[in-house]
Design a protein around this nucleic acid. Structure first.
Lengths: 154, 154
DNA sequence: CAACAAAATGCAACAGAGTTGCATATGCAA
DNA sequence: TTGCATATGCAACTCTGTTGCATTTTGTTG
């Protein structure tokens, strides 16, 4: 760890590289957000991220700037955005979702976490003539154990 | 048709019965909304419903009242509510959504159109204990006929 | 290394979807 | 028909996300 200076950790360097790779400027905001999302295995809300950044050593980030940072990462394909059950957006690092594209996953509508399932790959259905298939995914949605319990409780 | 009086159609009577069956008052608003949702094969937004009701012979319904009518139908289980991609709620009569979820979708990465496929859905894989499944979708992605041809051409 | 243009940031004001409080009206059971 | 729990209508509010614009920063060029 002695080689890590105040500019950041390995995940920062990693994030910087990814952002540059897709031709965008590696600003502090983008690097901070992308490396944060890379360390967390589930979708975070804008507010989650804002809070986490404010607590971190480098201080808070403007609300609007954070929205715009997220927009740019999403449109670059580095981050995924989806609306959860209570209609707030959840953001997650794209690599984490795509790495698991081979098998089925379960997404909790409550907390946004994604669970991988050991499912047999379903056979691809017949496509209309001329169509070309590039990817196929079996997506299950519902409530994970924690959220299902929470909802029953009240 | 001569047996239908000015109070409404078969779907109204049907809706009235369903609402009474679960122990709620069959108010005009509830009946109108539930029978509207019963005639439409997809999720409608609050605004869709508001507009449709305003155009219908019986005149508009208050915005807030409509929200509350939808709430009561949802909590009674007669209507399903889910946030769409742009984080607005879509409401559908319970039963229709399940029918629609029962097949696979193909989304074209070129033009963004979505095609419904007549494919038998694969069996749901086993979920970890305590998890609750609400929806399952088999999503295929690739190029539709038009976009595949276009890509070959130029 | 300095200057520069394009892009990102911060702030304030705005927009749309959904919710709450409260006075009034109404469905339905006795 | 009456009583009252429940539903309605209105206004004001909250929360998530957006837009406009002046200022600062990034990465490049000379």
């Amino acid at each position: 760890m002695s080689r890590m200076n105040r500019r950041g950790s390995k995940s920062s360097a990693d994030a910087t590289a990814k952002i540059r790779a897709i031709g965008q400027r590696a600003t502090p905001g983008r690097v901070r957000v992308l490396s944060l999302l890379g360390t967390v295995p589930r979708g975070l809300t804008h507010q989650d991220i804002e809070t986490a950044l404010a607590r971190s050593g480098e201080g808070p980030m403007d609300r609007v700037t954070l929205y715009r940072v997220l927009d740019s990462l999403v449109s670059a394909g580095l981050v995924l955005r989806q609306a959860d059950e209570s209609r707030v957006f959840r953001f997650s690092a794209a690599g984490q979702a795509e790495a698991h594209a081979a098998h089925a996953h379960f997404r909790c509508d409550g907390c946004g976490r994604v669970f991988c399932l050991e499912a047999p790959p379903p056979a691809a259905p017949a496509l209309p003539d001329g169509f070309r298939l590039s990817r196929m995914s079996l997506d299950l949605r519902g409530a994970c154990r924690d959220c299902a319990a929470k909802r029953r409780a009240g």
